[in-house]
Design a protein around this nucleic acid. Structure first.
Lengths: 195, 195
DNA sequence: AATTTAATATACCGATTGGTATATATTTGC
DNA sequence: GCAAATATATACCAATCGGTATATTAAATT
């Protein structure tokens, strides 16, 4: 890894939580230099423009949460358990253990939706990837007779994601952990009803 | 209504969709003057600063969707029907009939969460108000023996809101109306299971 | 260690940011 | 219809925006 690659990674690491909290328009180059301790010259020596930093920051934040999810999925034996790992993962995400500022997919989706097509595309790809991963899990569960074959895998996947993302919004906004627990209890009941 | 009051309303009407789409940091005073055809002098003659315009714009967007929801709730006879009016209302919201840029509560929640305490407080108040309204409906439904008394009204309310808001994020981001229909079908099943 | 190459810092650019003081229209009350 | 009050436009402010050309420093190659 060359010096430039290290610096590039360093910039991404330091700015990723800022972009996640403040959004694209809300994050200035001054924020970026302040967070890294580097100058504008150094930033622009490693990135063509602010967009590139923002895109790399999103990729970093996404990879962060996805890798943690996959690790936890592998630790679970049953499909229903695999589907419920999001509850604990995202609880850490809410408290800032994984990524400051909440779910990067949700944040980027809302932030970039009407303003930044490139970022929006990455968020959309992330949601579709997530959905497909859950569909995969459910199909495995159906094959293993753990989940009833009458259910619509894609519908389940989308519903699970919606409950989680909606739950994140509500509990972060209201700052009430109890709300998260209530919503996640509904998710548990939903997943457990898929037999 | 004085001239100033009319102008104030006019400014709010014209800028509300912009704030909803671009967020607080993403909406500039130039956006505001361009959308209204007025000058900065006129804007600042009616509002102390950009914050006041943003807060008024949020209130306007919120009132817009709430009044439509209440009208539709009143048209429904049964509680379960009342709980499901959000499906059609928010479908209009997705397509821009009600408010351009999607749900103002969700947008403001994500936009202001880590950046703008005053806006965040209004979004939080809106979510809590929404939750309480649903709790109210459910308690009516329980009293009318339409909904089983064993259910936890607050949990149901939060789950309904989470599914809707998560569904809005997903379907707006992916631009797939079919996803909205699948998620709303899950919501229907959920509400209909509350007997 | 010297030289070439790569990476970072400095200093600057025009444009735009939110905001204001003041002048000019436009309403409103009489 | 005239005067006082209100509302809008003009012209400007310092600060910050994203971005760049160039100088300086540090790292890699020989």
């Amino acid at each position: 890894m060359t010096k430039a690659e290290k610096t590039r990674n360093f910039i991404v690491e330091k700015t990723a939580p800022i972009f996640n909290m403040k959004g694209y328009a809300g994050t200035s180059l001054n924020d970026i230099t302040a967070a890294t301790g580097l100058t504008k010259g150094s930033i622009y020596g490693n990135f063509a423009n602010k967009d590139e930093v923002a895109l790399a920051a999103f990729d970093y934040n996404l990879k962060n949460v996805v890798s943690r999810i996959e690790a936890e999925i592998n630790r679970q034996k049953y499909v229903k358990g695999k589907l419920l790992v999001y509850i604990d993962i995202y609880q850490n995400l809410l408290t800032g253990t994984v990524t400051e500022g909440g779910c990067p997919i949700l944040n980027t989706a809302i932030d970039a939706d009407d303003t930044h097509p490139a970022l929006k595309a990455r968020a959309a790809k992330a949601v579709l990837g997530w959905k497909n991963r859950i569909v995969e899990l459910i199909e495995t569960g159906i094959a293993a007779k753990e989940i009833n074959a009458n259910y619509h895998p894609e519908q389940i996947a989308l519903t699970v994601i919606a409950i989680i993302e909606g739950g994140i919004m509500i509990s972060r906004l209201t700052a009430k952990p109890a709300y998260w627990n209530l919503i996640m209890d509904s998710l548990k009941k939903y997943v457990n009803s898929l037999s």
